[in-house]
Design a binder for these strands. Structure first.
Lengths: 211, 211, 211, 211
DNA sequence: CGATAAACGAGACGGTACGTCACGTCTTGCC
DNA sequence: GGCAAGACGTGACGTACCGTCTCGTTTATCG
């Protein structure tokens, strides 16, 4: 009943690993995009891909990890960070792209489910970190480092924290729904991260905290 | 006539609802705190509480929703927001308490798992919003409104966005691990949210500055 | 959702027992005739009759017993045994009526299910014996006693055994399907019960067997 | 490397089907013989046999069908029909054995419950027909055919009907209790089936019925 | 170039949990 | 005081996956 592909199934014996992997990831992505994470089951993926559960267990530590790989294989991350020389514009541009991703296309739900499933699935958590969150954080930090060297950011600021403040705010609204995720919201995030909410600049900008 | 002492419940007939609920929530909390979300199963909770699955299904739409109620019943939210007149101090104080919650005690993992499970469990998501995230967001916004009326925050700022920028940053590090969640991080979050990362105040802010 | 009757349900207080019984038996018969024995459940009957399970438990020892009473209430046994003076004709007439009952109308399945359920339901078994099988056996035996006194049956024959040989044969084909139950079959049963399958009358018709 | 001796089965993987079937049937028979049909539950059998419910569902369509197979596996049918050349003696011998089975040993109740459960359990009904009633009917009919060819039975008699008249009479008393099932009863059944209850042989033994 | 070993599909297996249904017992509240 | 309403513990139902394991087949590799 399975076997959605057109290739007539070469039989039972050994087949090239790459070919099997490809079919599996295709099937997993299909299931993921119209059924969510809970449709990505070793059982169902094996059936849909014409593969065997044993094979899946050999290559992926959990159904979540398989779903993650299938997802990123399909959406082709396109990891790049513009550098126009204006950090405010660059941050806004990136954040707009992110807002686009998690609101427009079905991607938002999938990302949310992946992050959700990664709590309590160590393998998926590791895969997400390595493939998704760490590279993105790193790119953003590097861009801000360049901006800081150009004098667009104060020297003492923790750049990684700013990543949390921008993207984390979006994830917050994605994972704990209740407030909308809009482009205006993205702009406000960047502006506030740069200029702050206080009416006046800090009087003595040097003081550290918790002393 | 039988069991006067230790077995407080005799047989099969109807028992007071409140009593059953209490036992169920106790059992669910126990399972949750030493086994995580995946230990909170209708099956196991019913068994541990001496209740019946049917009863659980009548009162809770999903195991996740039951876990959430059991969690909040036990950790007694203590929802309050200090108002010392100094919004920076108040925000830091609250954020420190939050950092404390999700790092020190076992609460962090549980909260993370609850949020994780709420992706893909609409009932749990609704329960979390209503019981947890919305009230907290509301308290913080109200405190900042008071601060704004005192002139400590610029009039045009979206206060709800600041909540996302502060707490969302912490959730970001909680749910997509890789960077530590520390008290210094909390302080830096508040300071940057108030004063921004740009070296100079906003250019258009000509009215007053360090001139 | 229940409450199929048109009477608008008189409320919650006490109601005349006879009225309640009537509604319950009607509802049970309805369920029985289009759903078989497995549809006659205390739960469903109570719901359909607008009665309470408590009430049903007070009056019937098991769902099977309730089904039996509902069945016999509806099909009105019409217990009578003709006596035309010709025992062969009378037996055939009765057996044809029985064949009619268990083949034509849906009665056959219900009777079979009742007998089936009575294995393992002592209350139903007792009810069936008392209401159904014993009276019928008794009527047939009495008719044959009259025939014997007229010289139409040999003196030494066990008349109750003949009942088993006639009706039991039909039940056999009803309960262990495989052979059809027809009117020819009924005729053959009566004829063989009267004249035997041996080609000649018993050689020494007086001698007993097992010697 | 582990469990060399007492625990013949280690873990979760696949095990030889025949082995599992054997254990399941043993457990089912045990439950059946001291608890009746209502003790033969997929749940309990699976537990007692150390098997999984899924496995049982794959091999048996209903708990009743499983019980039937377990029963016949244990009581080893020993299907044989003597042929001494005297049909009266042979029929009595077989009927005595049947009476023995359903009265002496616990078999009677089990058979009755199996037949009972087969009403409303199509799978069990089919299994009973195929394994139990049809072969037995066939053996008896064949024996009577041989007797008829020897001239011990009249040519026109429906032999299958005689099976119903003999065994059906016993089932009648088994399933609708009220009259005892004895060896004298068995003898009387055979004698009446052969020689009839009428005082004289049929006047015109050739007439057919219902014309 | 033919034997061997690796990898595969298929799927049965022991489990755990699901969500539902009915049982028989019990309490509450209405009439 | 009796009844409806219905919640309760119990236990079975039939299904879905899990992760492990056996089997037979096919293919690539190496002696």
């Amino acid at each position: 009943m399975a076997n959605t592909a057109d290739t007539p199934r070469s039989g039972r014996g050994r087949r090239p690993a790459a070919q099997v992997r490809e079919r599996v990831l295709q099937a997993a992505a299909d299931l993921l995009f119209d059924g969510g994470m809970k449709a990505v089951t070793f059982e169902r993926v094996a059936d849909a891909a014409g593969a065997s559960k044993t094979t899946l267990y050999k290559w992926w530590p959990s159904a979540g990890a398989l779903a993650a790989e299938a997802y990123f294989r399909r959406v082709e991350p396109a990891l790049s960070f513009p550098d126009t020389g204006d950090i405010e514009a660059d941050l806004k541009s990136q954040l707009h792209a992110f807002v686009e991703l998690i609101t427009e296309r079905g991607g938002g739900g999938v990302i949310a489910e992946l992050i959700g499933a990664s709590q309590g699935d160590a393998a998926l958590s590791a895969a997400l970190s390595q493939t998704y969150s760490l590279p993105r954080r790193s790119l953003a930090v590097q861009a801000m480092e360049r901006a800081r060297s150009r004098g667009q950011l104060r020297p003492g600021v923790d750049l990684s924290m700013i990543v949390d403040q921008l993207w984390g705010a979006c994830y917050h609204r994605l994972l704990l729904p209740g407030e909308p995720i809009t482009h205006d919201f993205a702009d406000a995030l960047v502006e506030n991260a740069l200029y702050g909410a206080a009416p006046m600049p800090r009087q003595a900008a040097t003081s550290s905290s918790r002393e």
